[in-house]
């Protein structure tokens, strides 16, 4: 597989390695160490690090600035960008800003609704949606053109990603929706956290039936549970999340002080099983405010050391 960008993530995938990515949430403040310390914890265990963009609509340090911090550490950031907060001028402008620092990966998202965050009374933008953002980046990269049609001097060279939630409804359009994202130009996919492995495998079968796994690199998303409480919260409160009762029960049946270890164990077992699913090209480990556990998960899942490319 030939590569189209200088992205390390793209290179690793093109060589047939299972990729490992993780994410860091920027701080609710301006301390750069909040990002650099998290990155230090995980940098040798992952190929690229996503920086979230005002996740759950809570105002935070911007994704672009945090990505630049990673770049200055010699790491490989994935710039997450939501269409909630910026119109097409701001999106294209930030893409160029990121490209000026040779940030070579972008994840195109619509973003959680602002009512979940600290500015519930604010406007949302949604000038374009996540699929159209994928198209926008591809146009900027491949055609060297702005949406307005003018030429871009030194176009961005970004490996373009999108999210997929195999568990959202309606299930019947989950595979067509992926096809649509691939058609829009998505080159890699990071999925929603997977707890219902049966359902994920059913989705992957649909993905393979249409040959989509050969057109896009699917990284399976995983978030280790810290406790039974977290499992219940994820099950009942987080939109689009599918946590089977068996997972909640397994954690609830574990003594409180051992629940975190059990959560890690579940995560590692899931990776082991997902490694066997044809079409899964890697893992996206989102250890929310628990970054220090990423190395352990990666090691136990047999994904360490990371390949040199």
């Amino acid at each position: 597989m030939s590569v189209k960008t200088p992205s390390k993530l793209e290179m690793i995938l093109s060589k047939g390695h299972l990729a490992v990515t993780s994410e860091c949430g920027p701080p609710r403040g301006s301390d750069p160490e909040a990002i650099t310390k998290k990155a230090e914890l995980i940098k040798d265990y992952v190929d690229a690090i996503n920086i979230t963009d005002n996740q759950t609509s809570m105002t935070r340090m911007c994704s672009l600035a945090a990505c630049i911090r990673l770049k200055q550490m010699g790491l490989e950031p994935v710039l997450q960008m939501v269409t909630r907060d910026r119109n097409r001028i701001a999106l294209q402008s930030d893409i160029l800003g990121a490209a000026s620092f040779d940030i070579n990966n972008i994840l195109c998202l619509s973003g959680d609704h602002q009512s979940f965050g600290d500015c519930a009374k604010g406007q949302n933008v949604h000038d374009i949606d996540s699929m159209q953002l994928i198209q926008t980046v591809r146009r900027m990269r491949d055609d060297g053109k702005f949406l307005g049609g003018d030429d871009i001097a030194r176009p961005p060279r970004m490996f373009v990603g999108a999210a997929a939630n195999p568990f959202a409804d309606p299930f019947e359009i989950r595979v067509p929706r992926l096809a649509k994202k691939v058609n829009a130009g998505a080159e890699f996919i990071q999925t929603q956290c997977i707890y219902n492995l049966d359902k994920f495998e059913e989705w992957m079968k649909g993905v393979r039936d249409r040959g989509l796994h050969e057109k896009v690199a699917i990284l399976a998303g995983l978030t280790p549970m810290k406790s039974a409480g977290m499992a219940k919260y994820m099950k009942n409160r987080v939109p689009g999340m599918d946590v089977p009762d068996a997972i909640v029960k397994r954690l609830s049946d574990t003594p409180k002080e051992k629940q975190a270890d059990e959560g890690i164990k579940i995560c590692v077992e899931s990776i082991q099983r997902l490694k066997e699913v044809p079409g899964v090209k890697g893992f996206h480990i989102m250890a929310i405010e628990w970054e220090e556990k990423v190395p352990e998960i990666v090691e136990k899942a047999g994904l360490y050391p990371r390949p040199e490319v």
């Binding site: 909630r84 619509s110 973003g111 959680d112 609704h113 009512s115 979940f116 949302n124 949604h126 374009i128 949606d129 996540s130 699929m131 159209q132 999210a163 939630n165 959202a168 409804d169 309606p170 359009i173 649509k180 829009a184 929603q192 939109p239 689009g240």
Partner: peptide, 26 residues
């Protein structure tokens, strides 16, 4: 659509309802 998504649904669609309100149809 609360996000006026042109190529929806977004990942927040659950059991036919919108992520912002369980009473609201997606």
């Amino acid at each position: 659509c609360a996000k006026r998504v042109m190529n929806g649904p977004c990942g927040g669609s659950t059991k036919g309802k919108c992520e912002i309100n369980k009473e609201l149809d997606c």
